[in-house]
Nucleic acid binder design. Structure first.
Length: 108
DNA sequence: GGACTGACCAACC
DNA sequence: AGGTTGGCCAGTC
């Protein structure tokens, strides 16, 4: 309830399949432009049901301690496009939020 | 009760 | 172009 993490969980839970978000991006969306660490902290305590695999770093790198490789495979399975660098194609999959749940590049 | 840490980010040398 | 530091909130020692 009264907690930043609650908002984070709620937002992560709304991320559609095949779409990703960045820590800082979500923090901004929740009104805390510099609380990216808090998002990370919340994810550290993330419930198993939370699809936090869709939460990546601002540059598209996968976060998640030792499980990041597993999460990357899950994202690939969801249809998230990856760059040859091994990072998520943020330009194509970064989710704009529940109010703009469309591709940033509509004509892709 | 104070200080440090933390799945990050961006500004600043 | 790359490394360092500051910053935010909350939880832990």
């Amino acid at each position: 309830m009264s907690g930043f993490s609650e908002q984070v969980y709620a937002l992560v839970a709304q991320i559609p399949q095949g779409r990703v978000m960045a820590y800082g991006q979500m923090a901004r969306m929740l009104g805390m432009p510099r609380a990216a660490r808090m998002v990370g902290w919340a994810m550290r305590n993330c419930p198993d049901r939370l699809p936090w695999q869709r939460v990546v770093m601002a540059d598209g790198s996968i976060a998640g301690g030792g499980y990041r490789e597993i999460r990357r495979a899950m994202l690939e399975a969801e249809g998230v496009p990856f760059l040859p660098d091994g990072r998520v194609d943020m330009a194509a999959c970064q989710w704009n939020g529940p109010k703009n749940d469309e591709s940033p590049q509509k004509g892709i």
